[in-house]
């Protein structure tokens, strides 16, 4: 069959992007990468993209197809054309374009380095034989260890799009993989490290990474696992993230839902104790006043079901206490 393929072209980092449409003879069972190869080999040798193993393991060929990141050697023409008449192929998002479909992944790699992505055994006695690792201890690392570092998750990450400090879902999936490894001896440092700005709490939980990951890493689930580990620490230094969680429960318990005006002050300014935090709220506060979106405290009304909600929260807390979980 003849398929129309629209590709975003860009001659260099500085050039203006443009779109070019090719007509390609292929079958439904061809991969998207087969289609790109056909274009490059038979029609236009100037088309640039990365590819290597064509078997979903090297991670080279992630691109956006019909608006979302996929591994092009994995997805088939038939699947992608289901409700389209044309294939649209663009480079990964959130990374600068070098040429056509080739992006500069420097930031992606640098972010990975930030989580210290290796198993550390420096302070442990190195045995003559292997460290023991039970099948179930290994099993819980499996999904994170599936990562091929293709960049699909990073491309679609809403947090990476607006937050320059966020290390990205790929880095945090790797962070979980090393942190949860029973052979790693830096668990405590890692918990502190990933609790910092740029780490797990900067994820917006938009779910895109789970949606696009081609190899079942489900980075959001790994991020949640790190968060759980952090929250289980008894002696964690108070932080914005922890206050966020605690304050949410406190406010809901009090009024049945959240009084936004109190929420910001308690979380970001530590109830006024953190002056830097207080100052940081001024620009946002000003914009909210101007746009008429400020949740003035005198406009707030508690929920009608607040007593019931309070009873529910108390019951759950009691239950967890009885079980020794808090």
């Amino acid at each position: 069959m003849k398929v129309s393929v629209r590709i975003r072209r860009q001659a260099s980092r500085e050039s203006k992007p443009d779109y070019q449409t090719y007509s390609v003879e292929c079958s439904e069972g061809n991969t998207i990468l087969d289609v790109l190869n056909k274009i490059q080999w038979e029609q236009d040798g100037s088309l640039a993209y990365r590819r290597n193993c064509r078997n979903a393991i090297c991670g080279s060929c992630a691109m956006r197809v019909n608006g979302r990141a996929v591994l092009t050697c994995q997805n088939l023409v038939g699947e992608e054309l289901e409700d389209q008449t044309e294939l649209l192929i663009q480079p990964l998002g959130n990374l600068p374009v070098i040429k056509d479909l080739v992006v500069d992944m420097t930031k992606f790699w640098n972010n990975l380095k930030k989580v210290d992505p290796y198993v550390s055994t420096a302070s442990r006695q190195i045995p003559e034989k292997e460290f023991l690792q039970l099948p179930e201890q290994r099993e819980k690392l499996q999904s994170a260890a599936n990562c091929i570092l293709c960049g699909a998750c990073y491309s679609e990450c809403n947090s990476a799009a607006v937050n320059d400090d966020f290390v990205g879902p790929h880095a945090l999936a790797k962070a979980y993989r090393v942190m949860a490894d029973n052979r790693d001896d830096r668990t405590k440092e890692r918990i502190e490290q990933y609790n910092q700005s740029g780490g797990v709490w900067d994820c917006t939980r938009c779910f895109n990474c789970n949606e696009v990951c081609p190899v079942g890493v489900e980075p959001l689930d790994r991020i949640s696992q790190i968060k759980q580990t952090i929250l289980q620490q008894e002696k964690m230094e108070d932080s914005t993230a922890l206050r966020h969680r605690r304050t949410m429960v406190e406010l809901v318990k009090e009024d049945g839902w959240i009084d936004e005006s109190k929420f910001g002050l308690k979380v970001v300014t530590d109830s006024g104790r953190d002056l830097k935090g207080l100052v940081s709220l001024i620009p946002l506060g000003t914009r909210m006043v101007v746009k008429g979106k400020m949740p003035w405290p005198w406009k707030f009304k508690p929920s009608a079901g607040k007593l019931e909600i309070k009873a529910l929260i108390n019951a759950v807390s009691q239950h967890l206490k009885d079980q020794g979980k808090i």
Partner: peptide
């Protein structure tokens, strides 16, 4: 293994 490679394991962890 000491570098962190995730080999498949026997029931006893080897």
């Amino acid at each position: 293994e000491h570098l962190g490679v995730l080999f498949s394991r026997l029931e006893d962890g080897r």
